[in-house]
């Protein structure tokens, strides 16, 4: 009864409707756990902007210590506090992107992983909608090129992009965009193929709407749900990719600590001090697993609504 009366009330406030759509996360235990794991890291990152136990780059301790009461997670091969570095490491992934400007450390909000996913969403959705809605030669051409792109191992693509453009946050974003776009395009194409058969698309066509209007105003809003869930998974992949690049030593540039790079540097002393490898690896794993759980739970909950 209450559900009906709220639905009938004149105009539910925007805030309430947003809360209503967000609250489905809590109907799924999996999504809630995933969200908690992600929020844990976001929160640590936010705190690290203002406070870390010790300065993350200060070499003020004995090298290669295990966990102890001063350095909760131990220290690395240069005597830096691992806990502080892990906290600060969240920033570049999730919270800020450093732009190469003369004046030094200028950064814009939102981290490299997320910008990369936004980039691949924009590029992939545009290509996918074109392929799916227009069909014919557009479809053939776009999908052949994207398939060719998928055929390359990712690492090779990363290496090519970074070798051509040099190191830097923007380059990593570009690398993630290029490697993520084919997947997004495939999804967007399949959604467009389905949605374009609906009568409201015929209605738009009989109004003589432009192809771009139909793709972005009529089709895209209805493809939003699956694309967003997919994007959530892709943030996980992107974090993985950044970790890989960091491990190869060509990822996000210093001075900010980077989890992948931490693993790479600690690897040399893995037998004397395994902790320095374990902690950043765990950090990457927990954040990616959190995002995966969140996306999976969300998808399950959304599709359950539809049935």
């Amino acid at each position: 009864m209450t559900a009906i009366s709220t639905a009938r009330s004149k105009r539910p406030s925007r805030l309430a409707s947003i809360w209503k759509s967000v609250s489905i996360v809590f109907d799924s235990r999996v999504a809630t756990v995933g969200l908690a794991m992600v929020l844990f890291w976001v929160l640590l990152g936010l705190i690290s902007i203002f406070w870390t136990p010790y300065p993350p780059n200060a070499q003020s301790f004995v090298q290669n210590l295990g966990p102890n009461s001063t350095n909760w997670l131990g220290t690395d091969h240069l005597g830096r506090d691992i806990a502080s570095r892990l906290m600060a490491g969240t920033q570049v992934i999730l919270l800020k992107t450093r732009l190469p400007i003369e004046s030094g450390n200028f950064a814009i909000p939102i981290g490299v992983a997320i910008w990369g996913v936004i980039g691949s969403l924009l590029l992939g959705a545009t290509l996918g909608l074109n392929a799916g809605y227009r069909g014919g030669w557009h479809d053939q051409g776009i999908m052949q090129i994207l398939d060719a792109l998928i055929a390359f191992p990712r690492i090779v693509l990363y290496l090519v992009v970074i070798a051509a453009l040099g190191q830097g946050d923007l380059v990593v974003i570009l690398a993630i965009t290029v490697t993520g776009a084919p997947g997004v395009a495939r999804l967007a194409r399949s959604l467009a193929l389905d949605i374009k058969t609906r009568d409201y698309i015929r209605a738009a066509e009989t109004r003589g709407e432009s192809v771009w209007y139909i793709m972005f105003k009529e089709i895209l809003p209805n493809a939003r749900g699956p694309l967003l869930v997919d994007a959530m998974l892709r943030v996980g992949y992107a974090i993985f990719a950044i970790g890989t690049l960091g491990f190869l030593g060509i990822g996000l540039p210093p001075p900010d600590p980077d989890w992948g790079n931490m693993v790479n540097e600690a690897r040399r002393n893995i037998f004397s001090n395994p902790w320095a490898v374990i902690w950043p690896s765990l950090a990457i794993a927990s954040l990616v697993i959190g995002l995966n759980l969140f996306a999976d739970g969300l998808r399950e909950e959304i599709t359950r609504y539809q049935n």
Partner: peptide, 16 residues
């Protein structure tokens, strides 16, 4: 020249 469609469930765009 305009048109009315058959299927009530797909005649309207669910997003608007």
């Amino acid at each position: 020249l305009q048109m009315v469609f058959q299927n009530p469930d797909s005649t309207m765009n669910p997003s608007y």
